[in-house]
Amino acid sequence: MDLLQWLSAILLLSGCALGVIGGIGINRFPDFYTRMHAAGVTDTLCAGLFFGGLMIHFGLTLASAKLFLIFLFMLFTCPTSTHALAKAARHSGLVPWTKTSGVEQGASK
């Protein structure tokens, strides 16, 4: 396990750890808008670390270029789709949860 494999392993595992944290967050947050924050974490940063780790794993080949393109595509489209989701939710009258209102919209705890 030389340095590059260590670096790839660290990036991969930290990306996946962020993914699991985002997954847990999407289940624990009380409201749709707060859950979007958790899902947003897993969309961009987790994918970024993950694809960085895979790029190092593949080395300087065509596969790394493809991985970079996938990451670039996801970097632009995930926030856009999250925005579309928020806009549709807001227009359909989904009221954001506030500390005072305390309405627990299906939080699992």
Partner: peptide, 9 residues
């Protein structure tokens, strides 16, 4: 929208 968010993720 929660469901759509989960499907997107």
């Amino acid at each position: 929208f929660d469901r759509m968010l989960a499907v997107n993720m």
